[in-house]
């Protein structure tokens, strides 16, 4: 069921407490991945799956987020995020 946007903002704020403590690896390059992925889910989804996926696996995952889940990530950012995840959290 769809939730009104204002209500949704409230819920997101309420459930995000503590989430900001999740630290991703890498320097500036992590910011793009963090910003795009955190639109829908906390970044512990990335750390939880560290070393589970190789580069092809992370590519499949990012493509699932774009093509199935509807993440508005453009082609350039897509490649940067895949590279970042494979380098820092790849098998």
């Amino acid at each position: 069921m769809r939730t009104p946007f204002l209500l949704l903002c409230f819920i997101s704020a309420a459930t995000a407490a503590g989430e900001s403590q999740i630290a991703l690896k890498g320097g500036q390059e992590k910011d793009k991945a963090a910003a795009q992925c955190a639109m829908c889910h906390s970044l512990d989804y990335i750390t939880m799956n560290a070393t589970v996926l190789d580069e092809a696996g992370w590519e499949r995952t990012v493509d699932k987020m774009i093509n199935v889940m509807g993440a508005p990530i453009n082609g350039e950012d897509r490649q940067a995020i895949i590279d970042y995840l494979a380098r820092n959290y790849g098998k």
Binding site: M1, M39, C40, G70
Partner: peptide, 14 residues
Amino acid sequence: LDGADSGVLEKTPD
């Protein structure tokens, strides 16, 4: 069966 929860994005499959 559907519940009250949903994705953050409009496009995310319920």
